[in-house]
Design a protein around this nucleic acid. Structure first.
Length: 135
DNA sequence: TTGTTGACTCCCG
DNA sequence: CCGGGAGCCAACA
């Protein structure tokens, strides 16, 4: 049962809380703010650990995959709900659960004072999970 | 220490 | 555009 430390989870929630309504970010982007886009998996695990109570304060639905689609792996009940929630906040989600990041992608905590606490640039997605099979 | 697992991401065919 | 596979990370058994 994979999990992440409470500390890590809290830092994830802190960043996710900065994403404004009507916009979305990606697991890799959140990971980037925490140090590396390769933290995408742990970021997902942190959100998975969100307690029901805590979920009321953390806009978890605004975090989607780097390819612009809503994550569904392993949970076919959360995803549909996430899509509904996003649409409710004005995010365009098509029938294939794809969101146009060019339009709704979060540009980063640009107007948040604490922005200086996060070194990595917004869309600076350094390659993650790369490396070819026969490299 | 090794193996597993998961709200991930990339590369390739 | 669509799978299939292989890296990657952290936490646990």
């Amino acid at each position: 049962m994979p999990s992440v430390s409470r500390d890590f989870a809290e830092s994830v929630y802190r960043i996710v809380c900065m994403v404004p309504e009507g916009q979305v970010t990606t697991y890799a982007q959140v990971g980037t703010y925490l140090g590396s886009p390769r933290l995408a998996r742990p970021v997902g695990n942190a959100l998975r650990q969100l307690s029901r109570a805590r979920a009321r304060d953390v806009p978890w639905q605004r975090v989607i995959k780097s390819d612009g689609t809503v994550a569904v792996r392993g949970d076919y009940t959360r995803a549909p709900r996430q899509v509904r929630m996003l649409r409710t906040e004005g995010v365009a989600v098509d029938e294939k659960w794809r969101v146009p990041l060019e339009i709704h992608g979060w540009r980063g905590p640009n107007k948040v004072p604490a922005v200086e606490a996060f070194p990595a640039p917004p869309m600076a997605r350094a390659r993650a999970g790369r490396r070819s099979k026969n490299d």
